[in-house]
């Protein structure tokens, strides 16, 4: 049991939310999860498992789940949203019905709202009264977190209270939670890496080797930083856990959903089939659409994002798209960043 016990509410019963709930509960914090389905809540409360996302992994006995948002949110010191970007606004609005200004509101969603290009923290500001808002991100594959393998995250917020509060909740011997201020950078990093993970999956699916994957990762990082700085991020953020850190983990991992999407695209499967087979949300798909539109409107040159978009939505074949990328004129490697 830790010296300071915090009341944490995790909104979302997916794999990452469950993994975070388990880490905090294991630290002795009082954790309540909000889940959409009664059946899932019963499973967590009675069998102490969350089979759909965590297999047979056993959750702490005192971890409680509910479908009642009011019950989940009221009384919590920290509310953490781990909800797919697609339904993020709708759920945030419900959270907003019950939230108060002294509560800390954090999200761990790596996506961008497709229709508006809003970042998740912007949605939280629009849909709730919360001001003390933050984002938790980094190379945190849920399965590895559940197994207790060492990992690192970053919590970014302009508010010290949020940074320190979240660090106290999740830091333990297997997870190092670093603090930061750059909310924009951390959110862009978390969202954009999913696009690059699809590209890396395509490269792997086409049978290319480590060189190709490394090329995708580093040029992807450059595009990420280009977009991020355009939106007001600090370029150094992309050298951290939420940038290169997450990118390397996602692009090298067979566990990554987005990577799996890329691999299957390379094998010639169509997107609808892939998403149906995958069963889970692959954030990289709507994010690619959103970023592609924003880049076009702002005149940003993001060739990997463009190539992924053409494979996902224009029916271009993966080999052709990769070939086109390789034929682009080459220039100064860091020119897009150096003169900012």
């Amino acid at each position: 049991m830790t010296a300071m016990t915090t009341d944490l509410c995790i909104v979302g019963g997916g794999s990452f939310g469950s993994a975070l709930a388990m880490i905090a509960a294991a630290q002795g914090h009082r954790v309540r999860m909000w889940v959409r389905r009664e059946q899932q809540a019963n499973e967590i409360n009675q069998a102490h498992t969350n089979g759909a996302y965590l297999g047979e992994a056993r959750l702490p006995d005192h971890l409680q789940a509910t479908t009642d948002m009011q019950l989940a949110v009221q009384g919590a010191t920290v509310v953490l949203m781990a909800i797919p970007s697609k339904s993020f606004r709708e759920v945030a609005r419900t959270v907003g019905e019950h939230l108060r200004g002294d509560q800390l509101l954090v999200h761990a969603t790596k996506g961008i709202e497709a229709a508006t290009f809003a970042r998740m923290s912007q949605i939280l500001r629009e849909e709730t009264c919360a001001l003390k808002i933050g984002v938790l991100s980094g190379p945190n594959l849920a399965a590895e977190l559940m197994q207790g393998h060492p990992s690192g995250s970053v919590i970014a917020s302009p508010y010290d209270e949020v940074v320190h509060g979240v660090q106290a909740l999740f830091s333990h011997s297997h997870l190092r939670v670093y603090g930061g201020r750059d909310v924009v950078g951390v959110e862009v990093g978390g969202a954009f890496k999913n696009i690059i993970a699809i590209a890396a999956g395509v490269a792997d699916g086409l049978g290319f080797g480590d060189n190709a994957r490394s090329l995708v990762i580093t040029r992807g990082l450059s595009e990420m930083a280009w977009l991020g700085t355009h939106l007001g991020a600090d370029v150094f953020t992309f050298g951290g856990l939420a940038g290169i850190g997450d990118l390397v983990a996602t692009c090298n991992s067979k566990l990554s959903r987005n990577h799996r999407v890329g691999e299957r695209l390379a094998l010639g499967k169509d997107l609808d089939t892939i998403l149906r087979e995958l069963k889970f949300t692959a954030e990289g798909v709507p994010t690619t659409d959103a970023v592609h539109r924003r880049a076009a409107a702002a005149g940003l040159h993001l060739p990997i994002c463009q190539a992924v978009y053409s494979v996902l939505f224009d029916g271009k074949n993966a080999t052709g798209a990769f070939g086109e990328l390789m034929r682009l004129p080459v220039g100064d490697e860091l020119s897009t960043l150096r003169y900012r």
Partner: peptide, 18 residues
């Protein structure tokens, strides 16, 4: 009365409670 973007009332005193 303070209002959020959805026009819901806000108890503003809460912001300064720690």
């Amino acid at each position: 009365v303070s209002r959020d973007f959805r026009d819901r009332p806000i108890d503003r005193t809460r912001y300064v409670i720690k």
